[in-house]
Every structure is written in C-alpha cells, then in structure tokens.
C-alpha cells in the first residue's frame, strides 16, 4: 500500500504532524506598526475632513485652519516615531534617503510621508504668521501629499507576498475610509464645544459613511467574497473563529456598529451628545480592527 497517497487522499492527511522544526517566529510587525497605521489615519484624515469642512463652512474656516496642521503634524509625528521605533536599526533610518530603492513602497512611502509632514510644518508656520493667502495656496499640494500618504501603506502591504489578505485591491479603499473615520472623529472630539449643529451633522455624515463603507468591505472580504487560497482561509479562520475573533468582533461592534447606530439615532432625535461618544468609539475600534488585520496573517507558518 502506498501510504503517502492514502494519507493525502483522506481526512487523516491532516494527521501529518511536524515533529521537529525550528521555533515559530511569531508576530514581527506588532502594535508599533498598528500605531503607525492608526496615527497615519488620523494625521491625514484630519486634513481631508478639515479641508471639506473649510470649504463647506467658510465662516468657521479659521478653526479648521488651526486644527489641520496642529493635529496633522502631531499624529504624523506619532506615526514616524513608532515607525522609527519599530526599526531594528533605527539609527540607520537615514539609509532610506541615501540608498533609496524605488521599487520599494516602504521607501517611496518614507519620502511621501516626510513631504507631507514638511508641508504641514509650513502650513503651521503660515498659520502663526497669519499669511492666509499663502496658506490657501498650499492646501492643494498638501492634499495631494495627504492622499498618497494615506494610500501608500496599501501598496506596502500589497508587496508583502507572504500575507495574502493584505494584498486585496480593497485595501486602498480601506485606508481612505479609515482616514475618513479618523479625521471626522477627531474633528468631532476637538470641536465638541466650538462647532455648531450643522457642522457636527456634516461631520457625523462623513463618520457614518466611512464607517459603513469600511464595515461593508470587511464583511464582504470575510463572508461574501472571501479569499480562496488555503493560506487566506486559515487567516480568515483566525480572524473569525480563532484567537483573534474576540478582538475582531469587539472592534466591529465598538468601532463600526455602535458609531453607525449613534449617528443614526442622533440624526433622528436631533440630539448631538451621542456624536462625541460615536467619535471616541470609532477611534478605539479602528485601532483594534487595524491590529487584528495586521497580526492575523503573521500567525500562520510559512514553511
């Protein structure tokens, strides 16, 4: 009897057991990288949401003009800090610029994010110098840099050949929606006492739309049109039913379902106190969802 063909054909096949191997390396990109993803969502999202509100409510433009560079540079700073801390040789970070490898999205991203941070710093300078005209002229180049800063991570994840669920084309949309969620949430929190009812309603629409879109994409990727490879199925199993399922579903409830409900309830009842809670919850849930998505593909053996 050819035993190997027998075990390959029957369910018993999975009874093949690794009896000696090197230790499993585990999670390499951990919560430092989650902080990078989360901080970047806020750092660019606040720009997009702020720009939208500035154009829609020009009477209160001064508020948004102040918030954009201050919050933007703070959270892009957090992103860069955790990125540097995650490097095993952080004092060689300057190699990015003296030995650039332009096929690498990590390298391209480092240029883009530093350009965005530089533009935010110039906006901050122009704000203090009260040079409104120059500030306005710089907004659109900064918007382009913010856009590429938002999506470069999707390109970076797509280059990670070993982690298939990061390579989906929807990842770009997820990054943009995360920026929409985070930007509107931060503005709702910061403008809790200074924004009028209309402004809060507009921001809640952005928050509600981004949350709904992002949630729909997650559910589609996991249930409606899941990845089909064996590797991706294992990862999806970890997310939905394995060690990470509690955190994932908590993220979905805290960061997506509850904020969506609160936005609807506040809209129906014309009471806006719940929007602050919705904003806070969406920021917490976003961090958790990003963390699960980052860690899950690192939990399967590659060899």
């Amino acid at each position: 009897m050819n035993f190997e063909s027998l075990v390959l054909d029957l369910p018993i096949f999975k009874s093949a057991i690794v009896s000696l191997d090197v230790a499993f390396t585990g999670v390499i990109w951990g919560w430092f990288v989650t902080m990078n993803l989360w901080g970047k969502s806020i750092g660019t999202g606040v720009f997009f949401a702020g720009l939208y509100m500035m154009k829609k409510y020009p009477k209160n433009a001064s508020f948004y003009k102040a918030v954009i560079p201050i919050v933007g540079i703070t959270f892009i700073g957090i992103t860069l800090l955790f990125t540097a801390l995650d490097l095993h040789q952080m004092f060689r970070a300057w190699h990015m610029f003296i030995y650039p490898h332009f096929t690498s999205i990590i390298n391209l991203g480092s240029w883009v994010i530093n350009i965005y941070a530089g533009l935010l710093a110039i906006l901050l300078f122009l704000l203090f110098k009260q040079k409104d005209e120059a500030y306005d002229k710089l907004l659109w180049p900064t918007a382009i840099a913010a856009f590429f800063t938002t999506i470069y991570t999707a390109g970076l994840l797509a280059q990670c050949n070993a982690r298939e669920i990061w390579q989906g084309p929807t990842e770009v949309v997820q990054m943009l929606m995360a920026a929409g969620m985070a930007g509107s949430a931060v503005l709702l929190l910061i403008g809790n006492f200074s924004l009028n009812k209309d402004e809060k309603t507009s921001l809640s629409y952005v928050l509600g739309f981004a949350t709904l879109m992002s949630f729909t994409i997650y559910m589609s990727e996991l249930y409606l049109a899941p990845f089909k490879s064996e590797e991706a199925e294992w990862v999806i199993h970890y997310v939905l039913h394995g060690d990470l399922s509690t955190m994932f579903w908590a993220a979905m409830v805290i960061g997506y379902i509850l904020p969506m409900l609160l936005v609807v309830i506040c809209h129906k009842s014309s009471a806006q106190k719940g929007l602050t809670l919705a904003a806070l919850l969406s920021l917490i849930g976003l961090w958790m969802a990003k963390h699960v998505w980052l860690v899950a593909p690192q939990m399967i053996p590659l060899s």
């Binding site: 390499i28 095993h88 690498s104 280059q159 590659l302």
Partner: peptide, 12 residues
C-alpha cells in the same frame, strides 16, 4: 535598517 519588510514579503 531592520524594518522586517523582507520577512513580511518572503512567502517561504
């Protein structure tokens, strides 16, 4: 620089 990008990219 120890970014570990290669570890994320290598499918083996």
């Amino acid at each position: 620089i120890g970014c570990a990008g290669c570890m994320m990219a290598c499918p083996y």
